[in-house]
Computed example of a mutant assay.
Amino acid sequence: MRKVSNLLSLIVLCVSLAACGTMGGPATEDSSGTSSGGAQAKESKQGTRDNTIRVLTPEASGTEVYENDDASIDVSNASDGYVMVAYKGSAAKVRMLIETPAGNTYNYLMDLDGTYDVFPLSEGSGTYKIGVYENLHDNQYAVAFSQSVNITLKDEYSMYLYPNAYVHFTASSTAVKKGQELAAGADTDLDVVENVYHYITKNIKYDYDKAETVESGYVPDVDETLATGKGICFDYASLMGAMLRSQGIPTRLEIGYAGTEYHAWISVYTKETGWIDKVIQFDGSKWTLMDPTLGSYANSSTIKDHLADDTYYQLKYKY
């Protein structure tokens, strides 16, 4: 069994991710067409692993709901690691905040169509305070509805299999179907991770213009990233997360700092390895990093420098 160390996690919507724009550089290819981020994905053979698409569907079941005239918070399936929240009022801008048992606050810009959106409970069992806040003017908000809920999670993995606000996909998503294709030649979950990783680092280019202009509240569209072949760190992490989650592989989208830059990356769990942490490149026998943005351009000396620095990745949020 190959052993890989533990991981971490995700994103806050109220903070601009433009800072990761200074991190990138174009991927390069050798004469064989292999990305410098690693070997080619093993797509040619049929693997022994079942690559059936496995998309879990979040539900607002209505068995445990807290609400008023402005908002509804459905915690019926909170033990699976998510809550469903809907805004029913008339404000032009609304944020939803989740205060975690550890005292961290996750901040989301809500849709205003009156339907339920899904949000992860990322920091284990305990008491979460969930609040919906209406914008008054500028950056001033007033509470529309809030509720504290004590939650006991079934396990530490299920929340990282469901789609959510930042890793959004359905069974019909193009990204999900591509993930199934990439998993066809795999014998193990780790093979799937390798195939998806190398495909993304080879085929998705860093979008410097987007990095310079992205605004607070930006949410990735995994199918758009796949279709355009470009994106920022948030897009890389969201796309890889959708592909792996839909193959039944728990994947955390993580937000924090890479060096001095605000950045998004991923962590992955497999039965073979446990959580894989701070990894970006697989050389056929061991992982040396797993950050699809950095993997799309980093040379071996850059990767070596990051591996030698245990403080390079500083996790703030996980989704």
Rank of each mutant, 00 (worst) to 15 (best):
L161M: 14
L161K: 10
Y162F: 14
Y162H: 09
P163K: 09
P163M: 11
P163F: 03
A165N: 08
A165R: 12
T170Q: 09
T170P: 01
A171Q: 10
S172I: 09
S173C: 06
T174H: 09
V176E: 00
K177P: 10
K177D: 13
K177T: 15
K177W: 08
K178L: 15
K178N: 08
G179Q: 09
G179T: 13
L182V: 08
L182A: 09
A184G: 13
A184V: 06
G185W: 06
G185K: 06
A186E: 04
A186G: 01
D187L: 06
T188A: 07
L190F: 09
L190I: 12
D191H: 06
V192F: 03
V192M: 03
V193D: 05
V193F: 10
E194M: 14
E194T: 15
E194D: 15
N195R: 03
V196C: 10
H198W: 05
Y199M: 00
Y199N: 02
Y199H: 01
I200G: 00
N203T: 06
N203I: 04
K205A: 15
K205N: 13
K205R: 12
Y206I: 05
D207E: 05
Y208F: 14
D209V: 15
K210S: 07
K210M: 15
T213M: 10
T213K: 13
V214D: 00
